[in-house]
Design a protein around this nucleic acid. Structure first.
Lengths: 230, 230
DNA sequence: ACCTGAACACCGTTCAAGT
DNA sequence: ACCTGAACACCGTTCAAGT
């Protein structure tokens, strides 16, 4: 066949097929040969579009990060402080908790739709533009809201911990549905644990929302203390 | 050579070598052939001790989980309610926040010592005894402290989200140390991000502690509300 | 019971060859 | 520029053979 008149592949088509494969069969199922077969080409063809498998994975990860809504941090992506600056001296009116809540929900939704790729994504932004844009928007918004830069960094980090942790795997589904696993002599409090997997969605959603609200409440307490000390 | 008088391998020796390999070179570096070479045997020898590579990985994971301290939840592992039951009606005296704090620190320390295996471990307890013991101890302690069972489940889940997320990868190290990555036109607030990797330990530790305290404060608020409504 | 080498169906990646 | 088949050094796992 050799070179066709119109290219058989594009980076977009490859990324979409790779994400589908990862979603359906896991990260280990993504092999260059398998992916090529899925795209009806031979294995080495992919190397005309990506230098390595890692570079392809990077593109898949960034496509997922691109789904996260950042609009609550201000309309423009690069104009800096567009919103009203924060007033830490007057607690109760700060807008950052709502922005953080909306963002965390969108962040989790984007990741939980593709849990098998979360371990890769959780390694950090690297040089991926959508991941860097996200970090920039969160940090910028917190600083503009009156958080000291060191605290803003920590909040960005701990929010990522919580969101990636909650999207990495279902808590409920991690417990076998087989009641015989939970011998009362070994695990006296897990007698009902075999029912967890059946309520997977509700348990994980409830845990995420509880944790998110607890985190925001705890941070609001610290935000209020910022003003007292100044 | 065939069968030696004294076995060359044992499950313990294999697990220890596998964990070392994963720590030093990552999860992908663990191949049965490479591991066998490390142990000075041929590849198929491992199959006399583990049925599959997955079964070996499970044993590695449970050995890490075994390092987590659970003593703050009561001395005995199987006798149920040994401690003083909780009194949700009288906030401020509850012991569960301290137990949860100590446990979370030990949990994170155990996992952060082996970050490369956290993605496997985060899939849930499965049938691994040390992981089930941990879930049992946390849930039992929260219920004994007066938390309703549904809430106790959510707290167990959200704590796992936060701890696994914080141990999965360093936040600070995820930002390239190369200042040229952070073009001010694209990322107006990341001008100092290239310094993060240099303060890796302090940033991640600070973020974990801030998040942990915020979570516990937020949960204490909810615990106080439990009594008001009853 | 516990080790070996040979074999099977896979990998990621390189490269010369085709248009 | 973009695809192909052949080739290289790897994988996990099975199995017959050895003691």
């Amino acid at each position: 066949m050799a070179r066709p008149r119109t290219p058989l592949l594009s980076r977009e088509r490859i990324v979409a097929a790779a994400l589908r494969l990862i979603d359906d069969e896991g990260l280990d199922a993504l092999s260059t040969r398998r992916l090529a077969t899925e795209l009806s080409v031979s294995g080495p063809s992919l190397y005309n579009h990506f230098a390595t498998k890692d570079e392809l994975l990077d593109a898949v990860v960034d496509s997922v990060m691109g789904e996260v809504d950042l609009s609550m941090f201000g309309t423009s992506g690069s104009s800096g402080t567009t919103g009203v600056p924060g007033v830490p001296g007057e607690p109760g009116r700060a807008a950052w908790p709502e922005a953080l809540r909306d963002w965390a929900r969108s962040y989790r939704a984007a990741l939980a739709a593709h849990p098998n790729i979360v371990p890769v994504l959780a390694q950090g932004p690297g040089r991926r533009p959508n991941a860097l844009r996200l970090a920039d928007a969160v940090f910028g918004h917190l600083v503009d809201s009156g958080w000291p830069r060191g605290q803003a960094t920590r909040i960005g980090a701990l929010m990522r911990y919580f969101v990636t942790g909650s999207a990495l795997a279902s808590f409920a589904a991690g417990f076998p549905a087989d009641a015989e696993v939970y011998d009362a002599a070994d695990y006296p409090h897990l007698g009902e644990a075999h029912r967890l997997a059946g309520h997977r969605g509700a348990v994980d959603e409830g845990a995420f929302e509880t944790g998110l609200e607890a985190l925001l409440d705890g941070l609001a307490l610290r935000y209020a203390r910022l003003a007292e000390r100044s």
